[in-house]
Design a protein around this nucleic acid. Sequence first.
DNA 1: CTATGGCACGGATT
DNA 2: AATCCGTGCCATAG
Length: 493
Amino acid sequence: MFAAHIQDNRPQATAHLAKTMSYLQLPATELEAALMAELDRNPALELVDELRCPGCGKRLRRLPCPTCAAPTGDGAPVVFLSPRQPGGLHEIEGGEDDLPETSVPERLDEHILRQIGPALAREERPVAAHILAQLDENGFLTEAPAEIARYKHVALSLVQRVLDLVQHADPPGVGAAGPQASLLIQLDCLSETSSAPPAMMHLARLLIQEHFAALGKMEYERVARRLRAEHGLHLMPGTIETAVQFIHRNLTPYPARAHWGDGKLPAADTAALRNPDVNITTLASDGGSALSVEVFAPLSGWLRVNPELKAAAANCSGEDRERWGQAIANAALVTKCLQQRNHTMRRLMQIIAEGQRDFILGGDGDLRPSTRVQIAQALGLHESTISRAVAGKSVALPDGRIVPLAKFFDRSLAVRDRVRQLVEAETDPLADDEIAAALAKEGLQVARRTVAKYRKMLGILPASVRGRQARTHLATRPHNARLTAVALATPPA
DNA sequence: CTATGGCACGGATT
DNA sequence: AATCCGTGCCATAG
Protein backbone atom coordinates (compact mmCIF):
# COMPACT_ATOMS: atom_id res chain seq x y z
CA MET A 1 0.00 0.00 0.00
CA PHE A 2 2.72 2.38 0.92
CA ALA A 3 4.69 1.54 -2.17
CA ALA A 4 1.76 2.18 -4.48
CA HIS A 5 1.06 5.42 -2.75
CA ILE A 6 4.58 6.62 -3.15
CA GLN A 7 4.84 5.51 -6.73
CA ASP A 8 1.72 7.39 -7.71
CA ASN A 9 2.92 10.61 -6.25
CA ARG A 10 6.58 10.58 -6.89
CA PRO A 11 6.50 13.01 -9.82
CA GLN A 12 4.61 15.48 -7.69
CA ALA A 13 6.96 14.94 -4.81
CA THR A 14 10.00 15.74 -6.89
CA ALA A 15 8.27 18.72 -8.40
CA HIS A 16 7.78 19.83 -4.86
CA LEU A 17 11.44 19.92 -4.14
CA ALA A 18 11.82 23.20 -5.92
CA LYS A 19 8.83 24.57 -4.11
CA THR A 20 10.11 23.79 -0.65
CA MET A 21 12.60 26.58 -1.04
CA SER A 22 9.77 29.08 -0.92
CA TYR A 23 8.32 28.13 2.44
CA LEU A 24 9.79 31.31 3.79
CA GLN A 25 7.47 33.50 1.81
CA LEU A 26 4.34 31.68 2.89
CA PRO A 27 2.33 33.25 5.70
CA ALA A 28 1.16 30.87 8.40
CA THR A 29 -2.25 30.32 6.88
CA GLU A 30 -0.84 29.23 3.57
CA LEU A 31 1.92 27.28 5.18
CA GLU A 32 -0.69 25.28 6.99
CA ALA A 33 -2.33 24.27 3.74
CA ALA A 34 1.02 23.39 2.20
CA LEU A 35 2.04 21.30 5.18
CA MET A 36 -1.26 19.49 5.38
CA ALA A 37 -0.94 18.61 1.72
CA GLU A 38 2.62 17.45 2.24
CA LEU A 39 1.70 15.34 5.25
CA ASP A 40 -1.10 13.83 3.28
CA ARG A 41 1.07 13.10 0.30
CA ASN A 42 4.24 11.90 1.91
CA PRO A 43 3.97 8.99 4.35
CA ALA A 44 7.57 9.50 5.41
CA LEU A 45 6.62 12.79 6.99
CA GLU A 46 4.85 12.69 10.31
CA LEU A 47 3.58 15.09 12.89
CA VAL A 48 3.61 13.86 16.47
CA ASP A 49 2.25 15.52 19.56
CA GLU A 50 5.17 14.71 21.73
CA LEU A 51 8.69 13.57 21.09
CA ARG A 52 10.51 10.97 23.11
CA CYS A 53 14.21 10.74 23.17
CA PRO A 54 15.33 7.61 21.36
CA GLY A 55 18.09 7.26 23.92
CA CYS A 56 16.49 7.64 27.32
CA GLY A 57 12.86 7.55 26.30
CA LYS A 58 12.05 10.70 28.21
CA ARG A 59 9.63 13.20 26.79
CA LEU A 60 11.41 16.13 25.19
CA ARG A 61 10.43 19.75 25.42
CA ARG A 62 13.32 21.09 23.43
CA LEU A 63 15.57 19.60 20.87
CA PRO A 64 18.90 18.56 22.35
CA CYS A 65 17.96 15.94 24.90
CA PRO A 66 19.28 17.16 28.25
CA THR A 67 20.25 13.70 29.42
CA CYS A 68 21.47 12.05 26.23
CA ALA A 69 23.98 13.65 23.93
CA ALA A 70 22.41 12.37 20.75
CA PRO A 71 19.89 14.97 19.56
CA THR A 72 17.57 12.83 17.48
CA GLY A 73 19.18 9.44 17.38
CA ASP A 74 19.27 9.06 13.63
CA GLY A 75 20.35 12.58 12.78
CA ALA A 76 17.19 13.32 10.83
CA PRO A 77 15.94 16.89 11.13
CA VAL A 78 13.13 17.53 13.54
CA VAL A 79 11.30 20.78 13.93
CA PHE A 80 9.07 21.90 16.74
CA LEU A 81 6.03 23.88 15.75
CA SER A 82 4.61 26.19 18.34
CA PRO A 83 0.85 26.35 18.35
CA ARG A 84 -1.06 29.43 17.50
CA GLN A 85 -3.34 30.76 20.14
CA PRO A 86 -6.84 30.15 18.89
CA GLY A 87 -9.04 33.13 18.27
CA GLY A 88 -6.29 35.66 17.94
CA LEU A 89 -4.48 37.52 20.63
CA HIS A 90 -6.27 40.77 20.36
CA GLU A 91 -9.40 39.28 21.82
CA ILE A 92 -7.72 38.35 25.03
CA GLU A 93 -7.83 41.72 26.61
CA GLY A 94 -10.35 44.44 26.03
CA GLY A 95 -12.83 44.93 23.26
CA GLU A 96 -11.71 46.19 19.93
CA ASP A 97 -12.98 49.63 20.80
CA ASP A 98 -10.21 50.46 23.18
CA LEU A 99 -7.56 49.40 20.70
CA PRO A 100 -5.72 52.12 18.85
CA GLU A 101 -7.39 53.25 15.69
CA THR A 102 -4.47 52.08 13.65
CA SER A 103 -5.25 48.43 14.06
CA VAL A 104 -7.59 47.35 11.31
CA PRO A 105 -7.97 43.74 12.23
CA GLU A 106 -10.81 42.99 9.90
CA ARG A 107 -11.92 43.94 6.48
CA LEU A 108 -15.27 45.51 5.97
CA ASP A 109 -16.92 42.64 4.14
CA GLU A 110 -15.93 40.15 6.81
CA HIS A 111 -17.13 42.46 9.51
CA ILE A 112 -20.54 42.67 7.94
CA LEU A 113 -20.75 39.03 6.99
CA ARG A 114 -20.06 38.02 10.55
CA GLN A 115 -23.01 40.08 11.71
CA ILE A 116 -25.55 39.00 9.15
CA GLY A 117 -24.28 35.47 8.65
CA PRO A 118 -26.57 33.84 11.20
CA ALA A 119 -29.61 35.49 9.68
CA LEU A 120 -28.88 34.20 6.21
CA ALA A 121 -30.54 31.20 4.67
CA ARG A 122 -28.29 28.90 2.70
CA GLU A 123 -29.39 30.16 -0.68
CA GLU A 124 -28.86 33.72 0.49
CA ARG A 125 -25.20 33.32 1.36
CA PRO A 126 -23.81 33.46 -2.18
CA VAL A 127 -25.88 36.56 -2.81
CA ALA A 128 -24.47 38.20 0.29
CA ALA A 129 -20.96 37.27 -0.77
CA HIS A 130 -21.58 38.73 -4.19
CA ILE A 131 -22.93 41.96 -2.80
CA LEU A 132 -20.04 42.38 -0.40
CA ALA A 133 -17.53 41.64 -3.13
CA GLN A 134 -19.04 44.25 -5.40
CA LEU A 135 -18.83 47.12 -2.92
CA ASP A 136 -16.70 49.94 -4.20
CA GLU A 137 -14.10 51.77 -2.17
CA ASN A 138 -16.78 53.91 -0.57
CA GLY A 139 -18.83 50.93 0.44
CA PHE A 140 -21.44 51.61 -2.18
CA LEU A 141 -23.13 49.08 -4.39
CA THR A 142 -23.13 50.32 -7.94
CA GLU A 143 -24.79 47.23 -9.31
CA ALA A 144 -28.58 47.25 -9.42
CA PRO A 145 -30.33 44.62 -7.29
CA ALA A 146 -32.22 43.40 -10.33
CA GLU A 147 -28.92 42.84 -12.08
CA ILE A 148 -27.66 40.74 -9.20
CA ALA A 149 -30.84 38.74 -9.14
CA ARG A 150 -30.49 37.99 -12.82
CA TYR A 151 -26.83 37.14 -12.49
CA LYS A 152 -27.33 34.86 -9.52
CA HIS A 153 -30.59 33.39 -10.80
CA VAL A 154 -32.54 34.21 -7.70
CA ALA A 155 -35.67 36.18 -6.97
CA LEU A 156 -35.35 39.93 -6.74
CA SER A 157 -37.04 39.86 -3.36
CA LEU A 158 -34.30 37.61 -2.02
CA VAL A 159 -31.63 40.06 -3.16
CA GLN A 160 -33.57 42.88 -1.59
CA ARG A 161 -33.77 41.07 1.69
CA VAL A 162 -30.05 40.36 1.80
CA LEU A 163 -29.23 43.88 0.72
CA ASP A 164 -31.45 45.19 3.47
CA LEU A 165 -29.49 43.18 6.02
CA VAL A 166 -26.18 44.45 4.66
CA GLN A 167 -27.34 48.04 4.71
CA HIS A 168 -28.50 47.89 8.29
CA ALA A 169 -25.47 46.05 9.67
CA ASP A 170 -22.89 47.78 11.79
CA PRO A 171 -21.50 50.53 9.67
CA PRO A 172 -25.05 51.43 8.65
CA GLY A 173 -25.55 52.56 5.09
CA VAL A 174 -22.94 50.35 3.48
CA GLY A 175 -24.34 48.81 0.35
CA ALA A 176 -26.41 51.82 -0.58
CA ALA A 177 -26.36 53.11 -4.13
CA GLY A 178 -24.74 56.40 -3.17
CA PRO A 179 -24.28 58.98 -0.43
CA GLN A 180 -27.86 60.11 -0.47
CA ALA A 181 -29.34 56.64 -0.19
CA SER A 182 -26.78 55.81 2.44
CA LEU A 183 -27.76 58.76 4.59
CA LEU A 184 -31.41 57.76 4.43
CA ILE A 185 -30.60 54.25 5.57
CA GLN A 186 -28.52 55.56 8.42
CA LEU A 187 -31.44 57.71 9.39
CA ASP A 188 -33.59 54.59 9.52
CA CYS A 189 -31.15 52.91 11.84
CA LEU A 190 -30.90 55.99 13.96
CA SER A 191 -34.63 56.28 14.42
CA GLU A 192 -34.69 52.78 15.88
CA THR A 193 -32.10 53.43 18.51
CA SER A 194 -31.92 57.14 19.09
CA SER A 195 -34.22 59.23 21.18
CA ALA A 196 -33.92 62.22 18.92
CA PRO A 197 -37.09 64.24 18.51
CA PRO A 198 -39.29 62.83 15.75
CA ALA A 199 -39.67 66.27 14.25
CA MET A 200 -35.93 66.51 13.80
CA MET A 201 -35.82 63.06 12.22
CA HIS A 202 -38.58 64.01 9.87
CA LEU A 203 -36.96 67.25 8.81
CA ALA A 204 -33.61 65.58 8.30
CA ARG A 205 -35.22 62.95 6.13
CA LEU A 206 -37.03 65.56 4.12
CA LEU A 207 -33.86 67.52 3.60
CA ILE A 208 -31.87 64.54 2.44
CA GLN A 209 -34.64 63.18 0.29
CA GLU A 210 -35.79 66.32 -1.45
CA HIS A 211 -33.00 68.83 -1.17
CA PHE A 212 -29.82 66.83 -1.13
CA ALA A 213 -28.07 68.85 -3.83
CA ALA A 214 -28.99 72.17 -2.26
CA LEU A 215 -27.78 70.91 1.08
CA GLY A 216 -24.35 70.34 -0.32
CA LYS A 217 -24.24 73.90 -1.57
CA MET A 218 -25.46 75.27 1.74
CA GLU A 219 -28.37 77.04 0.11
CA TYR A 220 -30.36 76.95 3.28
CA GLU A 221 -32.49 79.98 2.56
CA ARG A 222 -33.60 78.52 -0.73
CA VAL A 223 -34.39 75.20 0.88
CA ALA A 224 -36.45 76.92 3.53
CA ARG A 225 -38.46 78.74 0.90
CA ARG A 226 -39.12 75.59 -1.05
CA LEU A 227 -40.11 73.68 2.07
CA ARG A 228 -42.66 76.34 2.86
CA ALA A 229 -44.00 76.44 -0.65
CA GLU A 230 -44.15 72.72 -1.30
CA HIS A 231 -44.87 71.27 2.10
CA GLY A 232 -46.41 74.18 3.92
CA LEU A 233 -43.69 74.01 6.53
CA HIS A 234 -43.10 77.16 8.48
CA LEU A 235 -39.77 76.78 10.18
CA MET A 236 -38.26 78.79 12.95
CA PRO A 237 -35.14 80.64 11.87
CA GLY A 238 -32.10 78.47 12.16
CA THR A 239 -34.04 75.23 12.19
CA ILE A 240 -32.46 74.05 8.98
CA GLU A 241 -29.02 74.82 10.27
CA THR A 242 -29.80 72.79 13.36
CA ALA A 243 -31.01 69.93 11.21
CA VAL A 244 -27.88 70.05 9.09
CA GLN A 245 -25.82 70.04 12.22
CA PHE A 246 -27.77 67.02 13.40
CA ILE A 247 -27.04 65.26 10.13
CA HIS A 248 -23.36 66.03 10.30
CA ARG A 249 -23.10 64.77 13.84
CA ASN A 250 -24.99 61.55 13.44
CA LEU A 251 -24.59 60.48 9.84
CA THR A 252 -21.82 60.16 7.34
CA PRO A 253 -22.17 60.10 3.57
CA TYR A 254 -19.37 57.54 3.27
CA PRO A 255 -19.93 54.99 6.02
CA ALA A 256 -17.24 52.65 4.78
CA ARG A 257 -14.61 55.31 5.26
CA ALA A 258 -15.68 56.20 8.76
CA HIS A 259 -14.09 53.18 10.34
CA TRP A 260 -12.09 51.61 7.58
CA GLY A 261 -10.74 54.75 5.99
CA ASP A 262 -7.03 54.49 6.32
CA GLY A 263 -6.55 54.78 2.64
CA LYS A 264 -5.08 51.50 1.60
CA LEU A 265 -8.35 49.87 0.76
CA PRO A 266 -7.15 47.63 -2.03
CA ALA A 267 -5.08 45.70 0.51
CA ALA A 268 -5.14 42.21 -0.88
CA ASP A 269 -5.55 40.08 2.19
CA THR A 270 -6.35 41.93 5.34
CA ALA A 271 -7.74 38.56 6.34
CA ALA A 272 -4.18 37.64 7.28
CA LEU A 273 -4.33 40.31 9.94
CA ARG A 274 -6.54 38.03 11.96
CA ASN A 275 -3.89 35.36 11.94
CA PRO A 276 -0.56 36.85 12.93
CA ASP A 277 2.59 35.00 11.96
CA VAL A 278 4.66 36.41 14.75
CA ASN A 279 3.91 37.46 18.28
CA ILE A 280 5.90 40.11 20.09
CA THR A 281 5.41 40.32 23.82
CA THR A 282 6.97 42.22 26.63
CA LEU A 283 8.56 40.23 29.37
CA ALA A 284 6.87 41.24 32.58
CA SER A 285 9.86 40.09 34.60
CA ASP A 286 11.93 42.81 33.05
CA GLY A 287 9.56 45.64 33.71
CA GLY A 288 8.29 45.39 30.16
CA SER A 289 11.45 46.68 28.57
CA ALA A 290 12.60 43.44 27.01
CA LEU A 291 10.79 42.19 23.95
CA SER A 292 10.43 38.56 23.11
CA VAL A 293 9.48 37.28 19.69
CA GLU A 294 7.66 34.06 18.98
CA VAL A 295 7.19 32.74 15.49
CA PHE A 296 3.86 31.04 15.11
CA ALA A 297 3.50 27.81 13.22
CA PRO A 298 0.21 26.73 11.73
CA LEU A 299 0.31 23.30 13.34
CA SER A 300 1.44 22.19 16.73
CA GLY A 301 3.74 19.34 17.48
CA TRP A 302 6.96 17.90 16.20
CA LEU A 303 7.45 17.48 12.50
CA ARG A 304 9.94 14.79 11.56
CA VAL A 305 10.72 11.89 9.32
CA ASN A 306 8.84 8.81 10.40
CA PRO A 307 11.55 6.70 12.06
CA GLU A 308 9.75 3.37 11.63
CA LEU A 309 9.35 3.94 7.95
CA LYS A 310 12.93 5.00 7.68
CA ALA A 311 14.10 1.83 9.43
CA ALA A 312 11.87 -0.27 7.20
CA ALA A 313 13.24 1.39 4.11
CA ALA A 314 16.76 0.57 5.17
CA ASN A 315 15.88 -3.11 5.08
CA CYS A 316 14.37 -2.94 1.64
CA SER A 317 16.35 -3.37 -1.50
CA GLY A 318 16.32 -2.48 -5.14
CA GLU A 319 13.55 -0.42 -6.59
CA ASP A 320 11.53 -0.21 -3.39
CA ARG A 321 14.48 1.11 -1.50
CA GLU A 322 14.98 3.87 -4.02
CA ARG A 323 11.34 4.97 -4.00
CA TRP A 324 11.12 5.04 -0.24
CA GLY A 325 14.41 6.79 -0.11
CA GLN A 326 12.98 9.52 -2.29
CA ALA A 327 10.04 10.00 0.03
CA ILE A 328 12.30 10.06 3.06
CA ALA A 329 14.67 12.53 1.48
CA ASN A 330 11.78 14.74 0.57
CA ALA A 331 10.40 14.58 4.09
CA ALA A 332 13.79 15.47 5.49
CA LEU A 333 14.02 18.38 3.09
CA VAL A 334 10.63 19.68 4.13
CA THR A 335 11.49 19.63 7.80
CA LYS A 336 14.85 21.18 7.09
CA CYS A 337 13.29 24.00 5.11
CA LEU A 338 10.81 24.56 7.86
CA GLN A 339 13.61 24.69 10.36
CA GLN A 340 15.29 27.27 8.24
CA ARG A 341 12.10 29.25 7.86
CA ASN A 342 11.63 29.41 11.60
CA HIS A 343 15.22 30.30 12.11
CA THR A 344 15.34 33.18 9.65
CA MET A 345 11.96 34.44 10.73
CA ARG A 346 13.08 34.49 14.31
CA ARG A 347 16.33 36.26 13.54
CA LEU A 348 14.52 38.72 11.34
CA MET A 349 11.96 39.52 13.98
CA GLN A 350 14.55 39.87 16.68
CA ILE A 351 16.46 42.46 14.75
CA ILE A 352 13.27 44.29 13.87
CA ALA A 353 12.02 44.19 17.44
CA GLU A 354 15.32 45.54 18.59
CA GLY A 355 15.40 48.37 16.08
CA GLN A 356 11.75 49.30 16.33
CA ARG A 357 11.22 49.07 20.05
CA ASP A 358 9.83 52.60 20.16
CA PHE A 359 7.24 51.84 17.53
CA ILE A 360 6.27 48.53 19.08
CA LEU A 361 5.76 50.05 22.48
CA GLY A 362 4.55 53.40 21.20
CA GLY A 363 2.54 54.49 18.22
CA ASP A 364 2.78 54.99 14.49
CA GLY A 365 4.66 58.21 14.96
CA ASP A 366 7.57 56.43 16.59
CA LEU A 367 8.38 54.27 13.62
CA ARG A 368 11.85 54.70 12.29
CA PRO A 369 11.48 52.93 9.00
CA SER A 370 14.25 50.58 8.07
CA THR A 371 14.88 49.23 4.61
CA ARG A 372 15.09 45.61 3.66
CA VAL A 373 18.64 46.17 2.52
CA GLN A 374 19.74 47.22 5.99
CA ILE A 375 18.18 44.16 7.55
CA ALA A 376 19.68 41.92 4.90
CA GLN A 377 23.15 43.25 5.59
CA ALA A 378 22.71 42.91 9.31
CA LEU A 379 21.64 39.30 8.93
CA GLY A 380 24.01 38.40 6.14
CA LEU A 381 21.18 37.45 3.85
CA HIS A 382 20.14 38.56 0.43
CA GLU A 383 17.60 41.37 0.13
CA SER A 384 15.19 39.22 -1.76
CA THR A 385 15.22 36.77 1.13
CA ILE A 386 14.05 39.52 3.42
CA SER A 387 11.40 40.50 0.92
CA ARG A 388 10.08 36.96 0.85
CA ALA A 389 10.12 36.77 4.61
CA VAL A 390 8.22 40.02 4.98
CA ALA A 391 5.69 39.49 2.22
CA GLY A 392 2.18 38.80 3.36
CA LYS A 393 3.06 38.34 7.01
CA SER A 394 1.61 40.09 10.00
CA VAL A 395 2.74 40.48 13.56
CA ALA A 396 0.90 40.83 16.85
CA LEU A 397 2.26 43.56 19.08
CA PRO A 398 2.19 43.63 22.89
CA ASP A 399 -0.69 46.07 23.02
CA GLY A 400 -2.88 43.89 20.84
CA ARG A 401 -2.32 45.62 17.55
CA ILE A 402 -1.93 43.29 14.62
CA VAL A 403 -0.02 44.99 11.86
CA PRO A 404 1.38 43.82 8.57
CA LEU A 405 5.08 43.15 8.78
CA ALA A 406 5.59 45.47 5.83
CA LYS A 407 4.51 48.32 8.07
CA PHE A 408 7.93 48.28 9.69
CA PHE A 409 9.33 49.33 6.34
CA ASP A 410 6.79 52.04 5.57
CA ARG A 411 8.86 55.12 5.01
CA SER A 412 6.01 57.57 5.34
CA LEU A 413 4.06 56.16 8.25
CA ALA A 414 5.51 58.46 10.88
CA VAL A 415 4.88 61.52 8.73
CA ARG A 416 1.33 60.44 8.01
CA ASP A 417 0.71 60.00 11.69
CA ARG A 418 2.04 63.48 12.33
CA VAL A 419 -0.29 64.89 9.70
CA ARG A 420 -3.18 63.25 11.47
CA GLN A 421 -2.16 64.70 14.79
CA LEU A 422 -1.80 68.16 13.32
CA VAL A 423 -5.27 68.06 11.83
CA GLU A 424 -6.79 66.68 14.99
CA ALA A 425 -5.23 69.45 17.02
CA GLU A 426 -6.08 72.24 14.62
CA THR A 427 -8.44 74.99 15.65
CA ASP A 428 -8.60 76.65 12.29
CA PRO A 429 -8.49 74.27 9.32
CA LEU A 430 -4.94 73.92 8.06
CA ALA A 431 -4.39 73.98 4.32
CA ASP A 432 -1.98 71.49 2.83
CA ASP A 433 0.58 74.26 2.44
CA GLU A 434 0.42 75.09 6.12
CA ILE A 435 0.67 71.47 7.15
CA ALA A 436 3.74 71.09 4.97
CA ALA A 437 5.26 74.17 6.59
CA ALA A 438 4.50 72.88 10.08
CA LEU A 439 6.13 69.56 9.24
CA ALA A 440 9.17 71.34 7.85
CA LYS A 441 9.57 73.12 11.18
CA GLU A 442 9.83 69.73 12.81
CA GLY A 443 12.46 68.67 10.34
CA LEU A 444 10.12 66.58 8.22
CA GLN A 445 10.57 67.92 4.74
CA VAL A 446 7.66 66.97 2.54
CA ALA A 447 6.15 68.68 -0.46
CA ARG A 448 2.73 70.19 -0.29
CA ARG A 449 1.55 67.72 -2.88
CA THR A 450 2.62 64.85 -0.72
CA VAL A 451 0.70 66.19 2.24
CA ALA A 452 -2.39 66.10 0.07
CA LYS A 453 -1.77 62.44 -0.70
CA TYR A 454 -1.30 61.54 2.94
CA ARG A 455 -4.38 63.47 3.87
CA LYS A 456 -6.40 61.52 1.38
CA MET A 457 -4.94 58.26 2.63
CA LEU A 458 -6.04 59.19 6.12
CA GLY A 459 -9.54 59.96 4.91
CA ILE A 460 -9.22 63.60 5.95
CA LEU A 461 -11.25 66.03 3.92
CA PRO A 462 -9.74 69.13 2.30
CA ALA A 463 -9.33 72.16 4.53
CA SER A 464 -12.14 74.06 2.86
CA VAL A 465 -14.63 71.30 3.57
CA ARG A 466 -13.40 70.86 7.11
CA GLY A 467 -14.00 74.54 7.60
CA ARG A 468 -17.48 74.23 6.27
CA GLN A 469 -18.32 71.50 8.72
CA ALA A 470 -17.10 73.59 11.60
CA ARG A 471 -19.06 76.59 10.47
CA THR A 472 -22.19 74.50 10.19
CA HIS A 473 -22.60 74.67 13.92
CA LEU A 474 -25.17 77.30 14.57
CA ALA A 475 -23.62 78.58 17.76
CA THR A 476 -20.49 79.66 15.98
CA ARG A 477 -22.41 81.81 13.57
CA PRO A 478 -25.31 83.56 15.26
CA HIS A 479 -25.17 86.17 12.59
CA ASN A 480 -26.05 83.66 9.96
CA ALA A 481 -29.21 82.74 11.82
CA ARG A 482 -30.43 86.27 11.52
CA LEU A 483 -29.74 86.27 7.83
CA THR A 484 -31.78 83.15 7.53
CA ALA A 485 -34.57 84.73 9.48
CA VAL A 486 -34.64 87.62 7.10
CA ALA A 487 -34.69 85.30 4.16
CA LEU A 488 -37.58 83.38 5.64
CA ALA A 489 -39.51 86.56 6.28
CA THR A 490 -39.47 87.50 2.64
CA PRO A 491 -42.10 85.68 0.59
CA PRO A 492 -40.85 83.26 -2.06
CA ALA A 493 -40.48 84.76 -5.49
C1' DC B 1 -6.20 83.96 -7.27
C1' DT B 2 -5.71 80.03 -4.06
C1' DA B 3 -6.23 75.34 -2.72
C1' DT B 4 -6.64 70.64 -4.64
C1' DG B 5 -6.67 66.78 -7.47
C1' DG B 6 -4.83 64.29 -11.78
C1' DC B 7 -1.10 62.75 -14.54
C1' DA B 8 3.20 61.36 -15.09
C1' DC B 9 8.15 61.32 -14.37
C1' DG B 10 12.45 59.97 -11.91
C1' DG B 11 14.54 57.71 -8.35
C1' DA B 12 14.58 54.35 -4.89
C1' DT B 13 13.15 49.84 -3.39
C1' DT B 14 12.00 45.03 -3.99
C1' DA C 1 13.02 44.11 -14.37
C1' DA C 2 8.93 45.56 -12.00
C1' DT C 3 6.87 48.30 -8.64
C1' DC C 4 6.24 51.86 -5.36
C1' DC C 5 6.66 56.53 -3.76
C1' DG C 6 7.47 61.43 -3.60
C1' DT C 7 7.02 65.32 -6.28
C1' DG C 8 6.49 68.87 -10.04
C1' DC C 9 3.49 70.72 -13.42
C1' DC C 10 -0.94 71.88 -14.94
C1' DA C 11 -5.98 71.98 -15.06
C1' DT C 12 -9.93 72.97 -12.40
C1' DA C 13 -13.15 74.27 -8.77
C1' DG C 14 -14.42 77.52 -5.51
